[in-house]
Design a protein around this nucleic acid. Structure first.
Lengths: 335, 335
DNA sequence: TTGTAGGCGTTATCAA
DNA sequence: TTGATAACGCCTACAA
């Protein structure tokens, strides 16, 4: 049906192996090179990746396993990974495991079956065995957004701790002392880090942390909505609040609007991740911006490096910096 | 390296072809069946999809090509497609073309190279040639959210026209006459349909359409934000507004909050797609809900059917109904 | 029901 | 530089 190397051979009068060699960058006489090129064009030839894969046991396919396809943070990363890989001829198989332990395992098995050449994984907590199994199979692996102790493996992280640190520090510098935080689920690595940063900056400034100002949400919109209102209802409400992810930031803003709370007069605000929202809300919201594009690109690049058997710098820990956008949602508090 | 049929043959003392037949559902003696099963378990055998693919020229892979991976509407659909396909052993290669004509073509070529068995496509306007090429290659294709005239091909659509019709009709029934619409870009099929529904219901009720109440946005948050404010600033502002997609609904709500416009007293509101938002905003928002899950599932099921060479009902046009959730954001207007 | 043998399209080894 | 040939792991007549 489709044209094969054999057809090119016939067309050019050369042998199959010469064509194959040319295809793989070997040396061929200039004259033949042109001839082959011509044949490829006119016969519209494309290598059969499957035959090649069978022979080389490389699929030129990378598996990306994420918690959910219904979360823009993850899919944006995937989008960037895919862009980079595509340029090198790799295709991306995306699986999501719907935040489910069992599914995570099952989909991983699926990627094994597909014989992906490499894997990018954003793992669930407490599933270190999966990571170990990938490594045991010697499949190049890049972890995103999570470190696993005692496991050697390339990782792309965001410096969440200092992201929080910097954000909260700006509030402190501007005179705030009662600063609320809407933190995430503490079995999630990033959420732990973001809370740690909050606590550390208080320590560094010799301030005491008031545990009533620490609210733990679940990274969902509702969380932000409810917890912000809880924060405002406590005896001495905070003068500033720091919300630690996209969804909860939306929820908080909705709560703030609904309760007619004035930013920054009644509360100073730093949110997370949501650039669109931040740009639109008046006054413009201050936010922590994660380098989504860079996360994806870095992960893809590291993986490509490993796929090329380049093991320099292994295990690499890329710790990407967030950006703190200070806008109009922060007020100075007179000491 | 990995165990092959050959290994199973050795272990069981049977021949390769017997094993193969068993693997493909053929008849084998009960005794041998158990033996083979045992071998598969202990040797941890998995068929080599590539070898199989080379032989059968089936990859058990489906390509899904969407405009963007950074839009939750699309990725939710992908998520559901993937779930259904996975159960049948198909893997999903997701590509996005970042709303770019050229990229769309390039990524499609990529899917061809990967020899996907089928394709699910959410096409850009004015790229009918791509669709035709897929069909010319006899690759099973399911189109989502867009019809192409003069082309025979399975399609999964949402009945956007009647979605709008029903929504606006509810406003009319409750006495509204000046109803604003924030429509989408008119080169997009769904956006056309949604506007048509608005116009048709006015006609059916013998009411005149005031073109000043029709605003055309670009399906982005900013659009909603600005256009809602424009609507409220015209001489006789609308008593109700209907916003025709997710992002613009967010934008509109932000504008409404910011300008302290009271829902439903100052304006009745029907939004689109955003269930989370709708649930949280007070008063609860009325919205048009697209059957995201069903879109994905239907597309996957139709494709699976075609992949099994079942051509009954071709070309199928699945026209899925939206759901109109009436909540507290609509006020009755006294005639 | 089981086994034999040929071939899917490619790469890789080795000779020429 | 080029070509003949043997795999890669599987499926599928066909024969037993």
């Amino acid at each position: 049906m489709a044209t094969t190397i054999k057809d090119i051979a016939k067309y050019t009068g050369l042998s199959i192996s010469t064509i194959s060699k040319y295809l793989n960058g070997g040396n061929v006489l200039e004259r033949n090179k042109e001839l082959i090129e011509e044949a490829i064009q006119t016969l519209n030839f494309r290598v059969n990746e499957m035959a090649r894969g069978l022979r080389t046991s490389r699929t030129m396919t990378v598996g990306v396993l994420i918690p959910s396809l219904e979360n823009i943070f993850f899919t944006s990363i995937v989008s960037n990974i895919e862009s980079v890989l595509l340029k090198e001829g790799y295709s991306t198989i995306v699986c999501d495991y719907k935040e489910d332990h069992q599914l995570e395992e099952q989909k991983l098995q699926f990627l094994f079956d597909k014989m992906v050449d490499g894997i990018v994984l954003m793992p669930l907590p407490d599933n270190d065995n999966l990571v170990k199994e990938i490594i045991a199979r010697k499949i190049p692996l890049v972890l995103i957004d999570r470190m696993i102790s005692n496991v050697n493996c390339d990782v792309v992280l965001v410096d969440n701790l200092n992201a929080s640190y910097d954000a909260v520090e700006q509030l402190i510098i501007r005179g705030h002392r009662r600063i609320g935080i809407i933190a995430g689920p503490q079995n999630v690595y990033t959420a732990q880090e973001r809370l740690k940063g909050y606590i550390r900056v208080f320590e560094d400034y010799g301030l005491k942390v008031d545990s009533r100002l620490i609210k733990q949400g679940d990274y969902q919109i509702e969380s932000g909505y409810h917890l912000l209102q809880e924060l405002m209802k406590i005896e001495q409400p905070p003068t500033a609040v720091y919300v630690t992810n996209y969804e909860m930031t939306i929820g908080s803003i909705i709560a703030i609007n609904e309760n007619n709370i004035k930013i920054p007069d009644e509360i100073s605000f730093i949110g997370f991740d949501n650039q669109d929202l931040a740009r639109i809300v008046k006054p413009a919201l201050s936010i922590v911006v994660q380098p989504v594009q860079k996360i994806g690109e870095t992960a893809a690049q590291v993986l490509l490096k490993r796929l090329k058997k380049d093991l320099r710098g292994f295990p690499l820990v890329a710790r990407l910096k967030t950006q703190l956008l200070i806008r109009d949602s922060i007020k100075k508090v007179e000491g």
